[in-house]
């Protein structure tokens, strides 16, 4: 092997050798500062949310006492006589969460088990994008679907033979139609977080069970689900949080009447729907109704913050075990 002798001089370290920075690299420092500022914006947004909500909320409670807000009095902030009992719209939210989670949690878990343990590689390649599309449909379209298709359908097939209140046919807006649609809308969220947890289980655990002659069902129920338990719970909590925070479907399909009820055929007003509905109307800046908007938003924010913190803590706990 020959090497053409290169015309470049052999490297020489010319004295005085300096290893100090050849420039102050101010550009580099400015860039780091900019990047940090961008990341810190996330904190700023949170602070912004808290500040934006806090001021008007304080003002609200200056006008309306705590005892009236946290009470069962009617919810009618912009009527005469007015009423500010938040329990009615909390009940609306609870009712929506109840019916949607009754569908989303079991179906999401089932879908996750199927995807992780049963589906062939090819089936998974088709099913996952389908779930992603399901997740990507705009909520306003779901709302239209619930209002214009699901609600009339449920009205027609309502089991009127049922005794008492349950047998009354619903009106054109009621909890169940919104709950069903919302529940199905949340399935992909629950399924994907659950499945992430299941796929993070070390393969050895599964193989050990199969090696002992377990059936697929036994592996799924006795190994996979218990091992991924905190991840699954996290997905449930996340689904719950989405049900609490969703606006459009409930705004369009669940009704506009604040109702202290859990019946599936009643219309309800949720916290989010109240905010959405009030905002679309004419709200004078500085009126009590305007401040009510923020008080409800504050409650909503606190509730979801608590739920999310639980969910994040669960996911972290799960990671600690397996990573």
């Amino acid at each position: 092997m020959t090497i053409v002798s290169a015309p470049i001089e052999p490297p020489s370290v010319e004295p005085p050798l300096s290893l100090e920075p050849s420039s102050r690299r101010l550009g580099e420092k400015a860039i780091v500062a900019l990047l940090f500022a961008a990341a810190a914006l996330a904190v700023l947004i949170t602070v912004g949310i808290v500040l934006a909500i806090a001021g008007p909320t304080v003002e609200f409670f200056r006008q309306i006492p705590f005892s009236r807000f946290f009470s069962t009095e009617p919810w009618a902030p912009n009527f005469v006589p007015d009423g500010f009992g938040v329990y009615s719209i909390l009940a609306g939210t609870a009712s929506i969460v109840l019916y949607s989670c009754m569908i989303a949690l079991p179906a999401g878990l089932g879908a996750a088990i199927y995807l992780n343990e049963y589906a062939s590689h090819r089936a998974r390649k088709i099913l996952k994008p389908v779930l992603e599309v399901l997740e990507g449909i705009p909520t306003v379209v779901y709302g239209l679907f619930a209002l214009a298709f699901v609600a009339p359908l449920l009205q027609q097939i309502w089991p009127t033979f049922l005794p008492g209140k349950l047998g009354d046919p619903p009106g054109f807006q009621f909890v169940l139609s919104a709950g069903v649609v919302l529940g199905i809308m949340i399935i992909p969220t629950v399924a994907s977080v659950s499945q992430d947890a299941m796929s993070a289980i070390p393969g050895g655990l599964r193989e050990a069970a199969y090696g002992l002659g377990s059936t697929k069902m036994q592996v799924a129920t006795k190994v996979v689900v218990p091992s991924a338990f905190s991840g699954i719970v996290a997905s449930f909590v996340l689904g719950l949080s989405r049900a609490v925070g969703e606006t459009m479907v409930v705004l369009m399909a669940a009704g506009a009447i604040a109702n202290l009820t859990l019946w599936p055929n009643d219309p309800v007003l949720t916290m989010t729907a109240f905010i959405g509905r009030t905002a679309t109307g004419d709200v004078g800046f500085g009126t009590t109704t305007y401040y009510t908007l923020f008080a409800v938003a504050a409650l909503l924010f606190v509730i979801t913050l608590v739920i999310n913190t639980i969910s994040i803590a669960l996911v972290r706990k799960f990671r600690e075990v397996y990573e």
Binding site: V13, L17, S18, L19, E20, P21, S22
Partner: peptide, 18 residues
């Protein structure tokens, strides 16, 4: 070359260039 590589003024980037 006699210079303390972990000295306070030393720039690791300059070091890696050599």
């Amino acid at each position: 070359h006699g210079i303390e590589l972990y000295g306070p003024k030393i720039d690791p980037i300059e070091v890696r260039r050599r």
